[in-house]
Amino acid sequence: MSLVEFKNLSKNYGIKQALINANITFEKGKIYGLLGPNGSGKTTMIKIINDLLQPSSGEILINGKEPGIESKKIISYLPERTYLNMNMKVSELIQFFKDFYDDFDEEKAIKLLEKLKINKTDKLKNMSKGTKEKVQLIMVMSRKAELYILDEPIGGVDPASRDHILDTILTNFNEGASIIICTHLIADIEKILDQVIFINQGKIVLNEDADTIRNKKKTTIDKLFREEFKC
């Protein structure tokens, strides 16, 4: 059984079609790169998996079931924005994740925070945007989830910290789990991808094994993306 399955799924915002007849499956144990230009439908796909948007037609199944409480127990989601209550301290946030996610590993979160020199007693509202994003990523990666969905995980982080963040992602995700990474910064993440999905104007235009692209097409994913979406 596939971990996530889109069946003829479309999503419209009024007259604008954000996703058109998407048919795609995400398997267990793979790292997916969901890549496309701005407004291509990447975030819409991610939000539908997370039950934050409802499809206009078609179906989405997670472990064979519609999104709901059960799917939220196994998906760890990092949105492209800061979704934390700014009045909270980091320690309160840890408690929040501990309270609501059975798979949250408090020890791991504390270790990662210490590694990044983030103080548990600090209030989120006093942190820089980049630090807030790091805290958010730590919370998400400290879960032993089956699927991690990361929407622009390195978008707001300085280039020097990107490798560190990617390392955090790779060394902390649950063994056997899948990751869907959505980003514009392809060159930074392409080395970690198993499968590459290109999406443009709501349509999936490529769904290919990353090694096949590298070996058969003799190009990098970044180059292929630039050719595919040349203005």
Partner: peptide, 9 residues
């Protein structure tokens, strides 16, 4: 904040 509240189980 809804992104968090609607994704807790």
């Amino acid at each position: 904040e809804g992104y968090l509240m609607h994704t807790i189980p």
